[in-house]
Simulated scan of single mutants.
Amino acid sequence: MNAQAWDMLEAAGAAKIEHPGGTLAAHLGRTSDLLAAWGARPALVSAGLCHAFYGTDGFAVALLGLGRRDELVEAIGAEAEALVYFYASCDRGASYSQLADSEGVFVDRFTGTHLRPGLPARRDFAELTAANELDLATVSPDFHARHGSGLHALFARWRPLLSSAARAHCDNVLGAAPTGP
């Protein structure tokens, strides 16, 4: 695990911020651990640990302002920080339904920019999202009850973007994906 990133999380008070299943710090650690268990490359594992630094469309608390991105780059590297920004920037309502489509639009909620990310970026985003949401569905029965069926449908659409390990974990936590037409 990245000690510098953990120090930044501690300084930002992540261990004191309530989050489904405990604290934000605990959730971030579990998300990172899950990505590592799935065999994700180090940059994606680091992004999992830091994915909430700039807040998200689903969790408004930002631990670090966008004007301080260079500090996160120093802690986890440019590739991992770019993944964190991309994840945090997602306008979920505008982007989730189109993510599996190579011509789909991804909307940056910070800038309003409309992007058409390539397959590697869409795969990373889907993998990080799956790790994030599956952690919550695993540790919070209430979260699972409220969001499990929607996540099941979302990850079924994103199945081509997810690693085999992520797909298996989705099936285990949310139920097997539908097969056939």
Rank of each mutant, 00 (worst) to 15 (best):
E10D: 13
A15N: 11
H19S: 02
G22V: 02
L28I: 12
S32F: 03
S32D: 08
L35I: 01
A36W: 08
A36G: 10
G39N: 08
G39R: 07
A40N: 01
L44M: 01
G55T: 01
D57N: 10
G58D: 11
A60I: 10
V61A: 11
G67F: 01
R68G: 04
L72R: 07
E74M: 09
A75S: 05
A80Q: 01
E81A: 07
L83F: 00
Y85G: 03
F86R: 00
C90T: 14
C90S: 10
A94L: 04
S97E: 14
L99H: 04
E103T: 14
E103N: 15
V105Y: 04
V105P: 04
D108Y: 01
F110E: 03
T111D: 08
G112S: 00
T113W: 05
H114Y: 12
P117K: 00
R123Y: 00
R123Q: 06
E127C: 00
L128H: 06
T129E: 11
T138C: 13
F143C: 12
G148T: 14
S149M: 13
S149W: 15
L154M: 13
A156I: 13
L161K: 01
L161G: 02
S163P: 10
D171P: 12
P178D: 12
P178M: 10
T179K: 15
G180R: 08
